[in-house]
Design a protein around this nucleic acid. Structure first.
Length: 416
DNA sequence: TCTGGGGTCCTAGGACCC
DNA sequence: TCTGGGGTCCTAGGACCC
């Protein structure tokens, strides 16, 4: 059996843990720059706030329902996530942290009453972290996803649902609309609906050849998985295949110098993650784009893929390459709104054999270690390259909560 | 005025090699 | 000059996830 454990309204729940007066009240959490909604409490969902809605479009709802608004506090959410995951990890040796708020557990070989096991998980996570959890248990990963959805939907289940019979499997799949199936996005849902496939169950009944030709082997695996035959494997890699840092800006950026500074900073942020997983990268991509919603200016977006002459994780070297790349895609007289740096094509730093001719500068290694140490200690970047007027591109975060768990100066205070 | 920031997997087609 | 099968690598693009 597999479990999908999923934190309910995770970001909103994190905010509540440290501010219990928010219980029962509608909450939304906004993306970087307070741009759009990325999390909602149940009350906010009921009030009609849509996922991804731009903040300026829901002003009226916020007023009307007195919705509490938060800027995203990823340092807090990341730390809470690690706490939740480490509790879940104690329930089985084989688990997959699927996202910041979800975890698959492989319970094969574990002899327990599954419902009871799930209830225990939920209670422990709630007690130790304050985060509400839903647990779905089923013979495959995609069915565990379905079970989780049911656990969330029906309060009488107390947050745990187990699919352990054919009757329950079929009942669940008949209940689930096709567009809510894990792995079926908007594109496929529309095509399937047109073919008369309205529920997850209908999908499992389609001829295999049809599924394969429409959705490749990915769809076929999903179909088998939903039929109860485990076909989607647990993924256990810690190391990422690519690392990206991309941001929208708080204002329009015009000059090369402006973009240069942003790209240099994004490169350093990515390089730091790269070093943390002990990889070197062989390629990097960067992109810039103007505001796609601005009707007065033609949308401009361009990217460049750079093959590096040698694998490296040095911020200095990567920044140099990035800036050269930026020269190729920068155009004057544009109002840039977004840019990003993506590192890819990694090799293991410990296994890599330097080449005879072109190599990363070995002196950079200890320099980078020193920088990483300093930055880690303070929880933010205090050592930077090409650092200019940092204040001018601060993120807009008007509703930021505190770093309750990672900064001693912001610990929660209890007055008796 | 104001519209996120990450990721993964698969396929097809072209270049190139033996 | 033309003919052939089989392989790998790379790239772009499309689909999806939270």
């Amino acid at each position: 059996m597999y479990v999908l454990a999923d934190c309910n309204n995770f970001y909103a729940s994190c905010e509540r843990v440290f501010n219990p007066s928010l219980n029962g009240k509608p909450i939304v959490v906004l993306s970087n720059n307070d741009g759009c909604v990325i999390a909602r409490s149940n009350e906010a969902k009921v009030a009609g706030v849509k996922m991804g809605a731009p903040a300026f479009q829901i002003k009226e709802l916020i007023q009307r329902y007195n919705i509490q608004v938060f800027s995203s506090n990823f340092i807090l959410y990341g730390d809470m996530s690690r706490r939740v995951m480490s509790i879940l990890a104690s329930y089985t040796p084989v688990y997959e942290v699927y996202s910041i708020d979800e975890c698959f557990l492989d319970l094969n070989g574990i002899d327990a009453d599954m419902r009871e096991y799930g209830l225990r998980m939920r209670t422990q996570v709630r007690r130790w972290t304050g985060i509400p959890l839903s647990v779905g248990v089923a013979p495959t990963k995609s069915l565990a996803k379905v079970a989780n959805r049911i656990a969330k939907k029906f309060p009488e289940l107390q947050g745990v649902h187990v699919i352990d019979s054919e009757e329950k499997r079929i009942k669940a799949l008949r209940w689930l609309p096709i567009e809510d199936v894990w792995g079926i996005g908007r594109r496929y849902a529309r095509k399937l609906r047109a073919m008369g496939v309205n529920t997850a169950y209908d999908f499992t009944q389609l001829p295999e050849s049809m599924v394969r030709s429409l959705m490749t082997v990915v769809g076929w695996r999903l179909q088998r998985d939903l039929q109860g035959i485990p076909s989607i494997e647990m993924e256990l890699p810690e190391k990422k295949d690519s690392i990206a840092t991309t941001r929208s800006f708080d204002r329009d950026y015009n000059t090369f110098e402006d973009l240069h500074e942003r790209i240099a900073t994004f490169t350093m942020m990515s390089a730091e993650k790269l070093r943390r997983q002990q990889s070197l990268c062989r390629r990097m991509m960067l992109f810039v784009e103007t505001n796609r919603f601005n009707e007065k200016e033609d949308f401009y977006s361009n990217s460049v893929l750079l093959k590096l002459p040698f694998p490296t994780s040095s911020s200095l070297e990567l920044t140099q390459f990035a800036v050269n790349g930026l020269r190729k895609i920068y155009k004057e007289n544009k109002h840039y709104k977004r840019a990003g740096v993506i590192l890819m094509d990694f090799v293991d730093a410990n296994l890599y054999q330097p080449s005879l001719f072109f190599n990363s500068n070995p002196k950079h290694k200890s320099l980078m270690e020193a920088i990483d140490k300093l930055n880690n200690k303070h929880g933010k970047m205090i050592v930077r390259l090409a650092s200019q007027d940092e204040l001018t591109h601060k993120m807009r975060r008007l509703h930021l909560s505190k770093a309750y768990t990672t900064n001693v100066d912001e610990l929660i205070e209890i007055t008796i």
